[in-house]
Structures are given as structure tokens and as C-alpha cells.
Design a protein around this nucleic acid. Structure first.
Length: 103
RNA sequence: AAAGAAGAUAAAAUGUCUGCCCGGCACCUACUUUGAAAGUCUGAAAAGUAGGUCUUUCAAAGUAGGUGCUGGGAGGAAAGUCCGAACACCACAGGGCAGGAUACUUCCUAACGGGAAGUCUUGGUAACGAGGAGCCAGCUCCACAGAAACAAACCUCCAGCACCUACUUUGGGUGUCUGCAAAGCAGGUCUCUCAAAGUAGGUGCUGGGAAGGGUGAAAUGGUAGUGUAAGAGACUACCAGGUUUCGGUGUGAACCGGAAUGCUCGGAAAGCCUUAUCCGGUGCAAUGCCAAAUAGGAGAACAGGCCAGCCCGGCCACAUUGUUCUCGGGUGGGCAGCUGAAAUCGGUCAUUAUUAUGAACUCUGAAGAGUAUAGCAAUAUCCGGUUUAGAUAAAUAGACAUUAAAUUGCUUGUUAGGCGAUUUACAGAAUUCGGCUUAUUAUCUUCUUUGACA
């Protein structure tokens, strides 16, 4: 697994994706030929101040580490946080992410 | 006990599982360079010798990756980016204008718009807080209300003139009444009317005056008297303030005491402005370096390509072409800058310097000053210690459990405890420091006022 770091890569997915929505997050997915998962995390200022945004990003990364097996391996995914995700509990985040990866 | 004021400190703890970033050490793998040895192929006048090529092995260094062990890893505001600096680059002979910032005094400081102490004004019963150049240079503004917001006069006050009304007095006329026989004359506590004078009131005009009323955030000193047509610092006494000046104290802002002068002056400079002082610009995305692919640029060398096994021949190109190499610019990317500093704590046995305080005594009209040593404090010096993140879609954590604290519910055997629930703030480094401002949880210390009890 690797993280998406360049603006060009983000724009490529924004322009050509399949969208799935949960209560807390929105997934933008795109099939790729490489046998690896690429993930980008987007948390806007609507979610909260820096401490809250950083904590949410760390929690998403922790989920990805702990659930390495359920990931698809040939996709690029952008995870966008909705504004309510800032004060969600860990159980809610886990449930929402599991549901979105399952579909 | 309640309500306040000032300051200081801390920024919940422990464990389990799973992880992140930076460094150190050891080992392993790969690559590069250097050296040594062996072999191989070559090989300079002579030597298959020196040297060279390639391969293998070993050693050292470096780079990259991996494994293991180990060390370190957010804040008091990391925030806002508001001041001041370091550092980097650019600009710069000197001076002025413009622009910006600041504005009581002394001291601290690398510097500051920061801090400390003092001083004045002001708010508060007080602890304590807030503020500080200049509206006697010029201009401008002062909502609403009000006559008027700085030059005047609405009502009121006073004087004069004109007109109107009422009344009084005097005089004239008509009527009426009475008297005389009548014409007529005379008279009146009568009526109407005309004129003059006076008194009172009203209206208007001219002048005096700025005391009173009312408006406003703000109206040009206050009280009492003299004075006047009415009034007014016009004059007098006392009070308040201003200005000038003398003496004293203090480094200074300023303060204390005296004298003269009727001088009595609106507010706003977070309005223009005046005065004084300071300020070159851009910020680590600074700046320096390495440097791929692709495209294009410059330079150099070569002359080709297709048909064919080769030659001849034919076709294309004949230099703005093709191939190869080199160069510099630039993009993605990477490295350095990058983290130890104007840091912080303690000590005083001893040393030195400076500053402040200071029991006591003396002087003074007061404010205050002087003498002088012990002790104590601060700063510097000195001595000893402590800490010290470096990420880059951005690490420093995620989950769970226990404990702690606070709030709250239920409950019991109620100065106490048990069982639950919720909460544990504000907030995330980005070149580095010194400050300021803002956000915010808890605790402690000192002080003030009021009340209660002893």
C-alpha cells in the first residue's frame, strides 16, 4: 500500500472515478493495472481545526494498517471526510470504512 | 464566609496489543571506488619483462536496502502573524521630499511599538486598574436638541419711540333730565362722543446687557456684596483654576513653598496637521548545489538512406537534412540551508564592580535631605548543573483496560461510603530567537472590602 502525494494524481482520479458514499466518508475509486493499493486522504477545514483533522487522518491510517487483508489490491482510492466525521467515535469510523471497502 | 485584586505553578498517571519519524551500533545483501593476491588474454627497442584487459577471492571506504539491539521525539500558547532581531539575497556617494511607525521620565536590552521602577491625570470604598507630545501656528468637524457649538441673541430684563386697549383727570359738543311762564339761559353723583395729559397692559421698531430660563455629552469660573436704567470680574472679599516668576528638592518626569497678574481661555490631533526620534526592499517558497525522461536551442565530428549477398546502376537528400557526441538553460525530483541557542536553573564559602533599599542619629517651614556601618536584595563577574523534535499529502500515534480528579443519578449502616453515567480544557512544530495579543482547564500564594462569631 502507498499514499497518493501528487496533485496530478489526485486530479486524474477526480476526473474519472466511481463514487460510493457512507455516513462519514466518500470514496472515489479507480481501477489500475498495478498490483497495489494507492490511497489518498482528504480532510478539509470544514471538519475542524488542525488537531481534529490530524487525529482523523491518523485514525484512518490506523484502520488501514489493522485491516490490511480486506483491501482490494488494484485500485486508487481517495477517502474524503464529511464534516461530521471530526467528532465521530472510533466504532462509527470503523463501521463506515468497513462498509465502504466491502462494496 | 462572601465578593473582588495581583501574581505564580502545572498542563492527569500507568499498563497491554498494534504502529510512525530521526539518529547510533552490529550483522547480511547488492553496487561503486581503491588496494593486494591468483588466473586469463595481450604486450613497449631486449625480456612474453614492465604495463594493460577480463574474471575470481580478500581488505578498506562509500551508497542503497533489510534484520536485530538501542537513544530521542510538540506547546504555554506550537495559534494570530502584530512588533523587534539574527540569517540570506537584491539595492545603495551624500542630502532632501514623500510614506510608515512611535510619543511623560529614568533604567534594562542585540533590538523593540517590549519590560521594571517612578511621575501626573483618571476609574474604583479599597487591593488595584487604565491612560500620557502639541487645539496660544493654520484649517476642519461637533449628530439630535438648542437662540447660539465660538460667534451670536429665542424667551426674559432695562431705556427710548410709534400704535392699540382700558381707566382716571381736564376741556368741548349732542342728547336727556331739572329749574325759571316761554324763546332761551343756567345747572347736573346721567348717557354718548371728541381732544389733551397721566397710569396700567399689549404689539412693533431702535438700542443696552449677557445676569436668569430652557436644550445638550459639552454653553466661557463659584458664593456674597458694591454698582447700574437693567446688568456684567465693571469693581471688592473669600474660594477654585491658569499664566509669569523667585527659592528649594530630585539624574529626570515632576513636587514643595512664596510673589505678581482679574488672566478665567469649550471639545476633538484612533481629524488634517505641527514638533521630535527611528525606518532601504524582499523573506527559508530566502539562498547555494546536484540533476532523469521528453521536446526545443547552441557547438563539434562524420556523410548518408532505400532497392541488392557484392559491384554497376536507379531513386531520395545535398544541408533550414540525418547520425553520434558535447554544452548550457529549464521542468519533475533530490541535497544543503536545518537546528546548541542574545537558552535556562541553582549557589555565594570566598572575590570584584554597579545599582537600589535601609534600623538609628542629625537638619528642615514643608516636600525632603545629609551622615554612616552591619544586614539584606538585584545585575554583571565567578563556580556548578540541566535541557536541547526536525517532519515535508507533513512523524511524535491508534485502540483497549485500570487508576486519579470533577460533575451528576441511585442507594446504605449518612462528618463517611457503595454502585453507575458523563467529562478531563485551549489546542499541533515547519529557519531560529526576544516580545505582544488572543484562546483556555486546574491548583496555590499574597492582598483588599464587607459580614458573622470569639
Amino acid at each position: 500500500m502507498r499514499f497518493i502525494t501528487s496533485t496530478r494524481e489526485y486530479l486524474e482520479i477526480y476526473n474519472n472515478n466511481t463514487k460510493s458514499e457512507g455516513d462519514l466518508f466518500i470514496f472515489l475509486k479507480k481501477k489500475i493495472s498495478e498490483d497495489i493499493l494507492a490511497v489518498g486522504i482528504v480532510v478539509s477545514k470544514k471538519v475542524g481545526k488542525a488537531v481534529i483533522r490530524n487525529k482523523l487522518k491518523r485514525r484512518i491510517k490506523a484502520f488501514l494498517r489493522e485491516n490490511i487483508n480486506i483491501h482490494p489490491t488494484n485500485e486508487k482510492i481517495i477517502i474524503i471526510a464529511r464534516s461530521v466525521a471530526g467528532n465521530a467515535a472510533w466504532q462509527e469510523i470503523k463501521k463506515d470504512l468497513t462498509m465502504l471497502f466491502g462494496t
